[in-house]
């Protein structure tokens, strides 16, 4: 469990102060895969470094497993850090040491005996899929393999928390996917709480269950990934969501829409079970309305299907209203698009 309470961080250099974090409140529950997303300079790097106290807050408190890190002595803090693994964008492996020795380092720091270290390191390398690379140097590995070594190293001391600092930002999409699957496996098999910072919404979509969106040192939106993806409130969040979910009617389609009297445009939202039922079909069969689908998209988030459809309904007002209440009663989110809204995009 990680909790940041009203945290501020100000850097002062040559008399000029720069507020990196302005009142952050975050709670990460045990077993969460918590994503923090934001553009460069939003303060997410600073945020993740507060969790293992690589950065100390100017104001506010950081709790890990219920303990206030600010109350720890240097020695206690070092012990606490061994419970928090961290992986980095640029891996930060020792280039002069073999893969085996890189993974062994946290155990050497813990003064474990040689046999124990050997057993644990080989087991970890096997787990991350690098059983045959113990004797290689990092320079002989690909980016994805280096990150696997980083992960094995971070897990060596059996931490309960894993911090990922842009861990996939230097990797290609396919490698990113395999690393994310590995993180998911770690979360599931060892029940390790994972905190990820990223600027890629696809990372959040792929493995996170909770997300916080940051901008200019503040968290502008947070909640379950399904909530935030389904109903992004803030423009920045909407922009991030757009990067993974196409959510607006194509231009040519927009031009061809005829807004006639007795017709209306509606945004429909299907979540979970209702996305797999033939609701629109039933509606058309039961009511005398014409349906014109302008846009449709299905996305899977947290293993739940999220469907977004924009339709134009034509027909007698009474029939249209009946059809709309049928949709609402079937659990579909319905929202009429304002006449003057020419954008017809989802947010």
């Amino acid at each position: 469990m990680i909790e940041l309470k009203d945290v501020y961080k100000t850097y002062t250099r040559k008399g000029i102060s720069n507020d990196a974090l302005k009142g952050i409140n975050v709670k990460v529950e045990k077993g969460d895969i918590f994503g923090v997303i934001g553009y460069s300079g939003a303060g997410k790097s600073t945020l993740i470094r507060l969790v293992n106290y690589l950065e100390k807050p100017t104001k506010g408190q950081v709790f890990v497993d219920g303990h206030d890190l600010g109350k720890y002595s240097d020695k206690e803090l070092r012990a606490a850090k061994k419970n928090i693994g961290m992986i980095f964008q640029h891996f930060n492996l020792l280039e002069s040491k073999k893969v085996f020795d890189n993974v062994a380092i946290p155990l050497i720091l813990l003064k474990k005996n040689k046999d124990e270290i050997r057993k644990r390191v080989l087991e970890l390398l096997e787990f991350v899929g690098l059983g045959d690379k113990a004797g290689s140097y990092p320079s002989e590995l690909s980016g994805g393999q280096k990150q696997r070594v980083g992960i094995a190293r971070a897990l060596a001391s059996n931490p309960s928390i894993l911090l990922c600092d842009e861990a996939t930002s230097a990797l290609d999409p396919q490698t990113t996917r395999s690393i994310l699957q590995l993180l998911k496996k770690i979360n599931a098999e060892y029940n390790i709480t994972v905190m990820i910072i990223t600027h890629e919404m696809s990372v959040i979509q792929e493995i996170c269950n909770k997300v916080a969106v940051m901008e200019e040192g503040r968290i502008i939106e947070q909640g379950s990934v399904l909530e935030v993806f389904g109903h992004p409130q803030h423009p920045t969040t909407q922009n991030f969501v757009k990067t993974v979910i196409q959510n607006s009617i194509t231009n040519s389609m927009q031009k061809s829409i005829k807004r006639e009297p007795g017709s209306g445009i509606y945004k429909l939202e299907f979540v979970g079970q209702c996305a797999s039922e033939p609701i629109l079909y039933k509606m058309i069969r039961s009511y005398d309305v014409q349906v014109n689908i302008l846009f449709a998209n299905m996305t899977e988030i947290e293993e739940t299907t999220l469907g977004k459809v924009i339709i134009q309904l034509k027909g007698d007002t009474a029939e249209v209203n009946k059809a709309l209440s049928f949709l609402k009663n079937s659990g579909v989110g319905v929202e009429e698009v304002e006449k003057h809204d020419v954008n017809y995009s989802y947010n």
Binding site: N52, L54, L77, R78, A79, A80, K81, K82, I84, M86, F88, H90, N92, L93, L94, S96, K97, I105, P106, I108, L109, S157, L163
Partner: peptide, 23 residues
Amino acid sequence: GILEAAEAMGATPFQVIWYFLLP
């Protein structure tokens, strides 16, 4: 970055020098 990794592992200053900086 390597020194940051060392610090994240909870290495003492001596360990940072001996196990990370010098090698």
